[in-house]
Design a protein around this nucleic acid. Structure first.
Lengths: 340, 340
DNA sequence: TTGAAAGCGATACCAT
DNA sequence: ATGGTATCGCTTTCAA
């Protein structure tokens, strides 16, 4: 049993294939009777329109690709959700690739997306290693939007937040509370630009306050509650003078809280903790977490809108959008304990 | 500037297009010199292989669709991550649709996927309303795998867990601890099959223990920490006799813990709480959460493998796979307090 | 309003 | 090992 195609419908309706195509795409350009006849035949025959063939003929895909580092994070999920919500309003669909923090995988995904002739690619955090490649893809006519970080790329569009500033603001907040020995737990800042910017924000804020940077207080790890707990336990056992820790993601901060409880210390009386992201759980944990709110969903929506707009208009102007973040003060930070 | 196509490469290399195609797909069937020549030309000309056109010609797509109810849940994320990890080992790509709990949207997505000629569709929780449609899609040659629930569908494959049994086991555990007034907070069991099965498991366990079902103790809401908190606050203010609450998702349970803290009650001394899912945060919150471990990632991997296998072999045998769940006992459940 | 026909970019069968 | 060519299912110009 062969699959029914447009030509079969045309024959059955005694019209040309062109007319069937018009009936489906621009019904206003077909007479009422013909339209009705065609619609009926389609129903009778269970004809399924082949949008893949249409894309092929039109020489343009209706797919947009998204590349993320990981899917296991509420933060990425918020972004994806936002992107999805905007994309689904259009006739585009979203195709997702996961690079697992690996530049080579990311490269492969970009190439694959290019070969699939996608209309556009949103990259949540490309490593700088692939920037040249992305620029060449962009030059070849596929729209590219970088997201997550306020980005200096001279060619590519970007939609992100100012990770550096948010991080330095938060560090200053801790300094303002009186802390001098402030630990820092973060993702892999050697690999991920936005995390590096957070790290730089932390360092520069300390420098500006004449606090020396102590590398024993800095831990880089894969962001997860478990790793946050491990990192915090390590800091606590090595550094009795520590009075505050800035965890550059809420998942890490959440795990850190658990390590502190295990040591029978109190937050914020004995030690202050703050996070970065404003994940859903952060306002419900105990104590609730002081953190930086990141508008992940809005960021996703914005990135999606930018790329759809670019695809539709074909404009070449570069767009750089930076969304605001702000410190959400809750219960996990306070003044440092008095020296014993 | 026109895009370079295979025919251009062929001309430049003084061979036929067929040879270029062979060079790319089955290099062993091309002489060494020819192959080399072609490779060079490709590099020089920056030719990009058009896999969309190849899919079209071959009459089969290399895309697999996934439909989820929501992306905002670590549970869905685990599933997606698992699917992704297996899919990316193959030459298929994953395209994601979000139905937002809406059957009509789900219907639209299924249709869209069918029109895109996808090789297969994984549906994380279709509403039963769309089962007929899915069966027709399956009949039309697109492989379909249902996931999340042990499923009785007579035609479609499924990979899931036994939500009913897990839920009744957990309820029995609470009953075994001595609880008689057990609240239940869950997602929308009227709309989602797996949640309904959890609800039925709870009800049947109570019945079996001769505990009457009290609808004032049952709340249905959208799963999130916030809603869990709201629901728990409501239960606490209406029902002073309540000694335990079974939240049918960890996010709800997490919010419930927060509501209990606000009332200055202790867990588990005053009230026991258990969840469902075993989300990452559940072992790090305070108290750590007794819950049901769901192998989301494995479920995703398994669903992906099933669909890829079906696509490749074209086999028609129906597969029903049920993965095991188990109760993870942590610190949030205990015996009920003594009657005052 | 409708039809005829070219074309999109590859694959794959059949020859040579 | 290589080439010629029909073909996939649709869109789109040009004519009628």
């Amino acid at each position: 049993m062969k699959r029914i195609s447009m030509i079969d419908v045309a024959k059955a309706a005694n019209v040309s294939q062109a007319t069937v195509s018009r009936a489906l795409n621009t019904p206003s350009r077909v007479s009422k009777e013909t339209l009705e006849k065609i619609i009926n035949i389609i129903k009778e025959t269970n004809y399924i329109y082949n949008s893949a063939a249409a894309d092929f003929t039109r020489q343009k895909k209706t797919l947009i690709g998204l590349i993320v580092f990981t899917l296991k994070s509420s933060i990425q999920t918020g972004l994806i959700d936002g992107i999805q919500k905007e994309i689904e309003k259009t006739n585009y669909s979203l195709i997702i690739g996961n690079s697992h923090y690996d530049p080579a995988t990311e490269h492969r995904l970009i190439q694959e997306f290019q070969e699939r002739q996608l209309a556009g690619i949103i990259v949540a955090e490309s490593t700088e290693l692939n920037r040249d490649f992305l620029r060449s893809v962009h030059k070849a006519g596929i729209h590219v939007v970088l997201t997550w970080d306020k980005n200096e790329d001279p060619v590519l569009d970007s939609v992100g937040i100012d990770n550096y500033k948010a991080s330095s603001d938060m560090t200053n907040y801790l300094i303002g509370l009186g802390h001098r020995r402030i630990g820092f737990i973060a993702g892999m800042y050697n690999k991920i630009e936005r995390v590096r910017h957070r790290f730089e924000g932390y360092c520069d804020a300390l420098k500006a306050a004449d606090i020396p940077i102590d590398h024993k207080l800095i831990i880089s790890t894969t962001p997860s509650a478990l790793n946050g707990k491990i990192a915090m336990a390590q800091l606590l056992s090595h550094d009795p003078d520590l009075t505050a820790v800035f965890a550059a993601s809420d998942a890490l901060a959440f795990g850190a809280l658990s390590a502190i409880r295990d040591k029978k210390l109190r937050v914020p009386e004995d030690i202050s903790i703050c996070g970065f992201d404003d994940a859903e759980f952060s306002s419900f944990c105990s104590p609730s977490l002081t953190t930086i709110h990141v508008p992940t969903e809005e960021m996703g929506r914005c990135a999606a809108n930018v790329i759809v707009e670019k695809i539709r208009t074909g404009k070449e102007n570069q767009l750089k959008i930076t969304l605001d973040t702000n410190i959400i003060i809750r219960d996990s930070c306070g003044n440092p304990p008095h020296k014993k």
